[in-house]
Amino acid sequence: MAVTSVKSLSETITFPPVWIPETIRFENFTLAWDSGPFLRYFVNSLIVTLSILVLQLFTIVPAAYAFARYRFFADRALFALTMITLMIPTQLIFLPVYLQFSSWGLLDTHLALILPFAANAFAIFMLRQTFKQVPEELLEAARLDQASEWKIMYMIMVPMAKPTIITLLLFSFITHWNDYFWPLVMTTTDASRTLPVGISALTNVEGGVAWHIMMAGNMILVVPILIIFFVAQRHIIRAFVYTGVK
């Protein structure tokens, strides 16, 4: 099978299932858009993904900094716990978490889609590595400059780790924008469903599958990712390759 390029991919799924379309039918998009509450899904996806990013920023940076720079009681144990989390896929924990959320009355809400991902073990691990590479001298210089520990973190460490942080956020965005499993399990109504789940429902249309509409629907899901990818292509590829090689 030949390598499928992005362009051919997007072209393939835009067109109706004819090898060469006679006319380019943009109205497929509107058809798809109208065939379900896609605006709702889109907004839900946006709310969930962005909330996750913001929360992660607030949990990851301090944790990575503490793991990189402080020695404290049980630091190794807590770091080990973080690393264990890294290997637990959501496909393993959805049942107990589902029960938990149902007892809290949070099923089918945005919170159920956001909270479990408010922290990210992989990101903590990566950011910790980055923080560790900052020479100790720099921190000492800042201490001699009478900077407080918080100030050192936000004025010196975070700006230095900016490329890593951006990369990790892109990473997170892609993962959670695309996520299908978790919203599938945790949502029951359109009020909180996200795009991937909403679009997948197009396969179950009664009376045969409307391929052209389904493909157009997918464009809504894919295009934001492709835009981000092309804007930050080097960043993203470097990030993925780095995590694979190192």
Partner: peptide, 26 residues
Amino acid sequence: VSMVFQNYALYPTMSVKGNIEFGLKN
């Protein structure tokens, strides 16, 4: 006490001015 480090330990994300100013701001 002021210190000059072996590897200078300049804050790479700040300009020369920012580096000099940081201690004063604090």
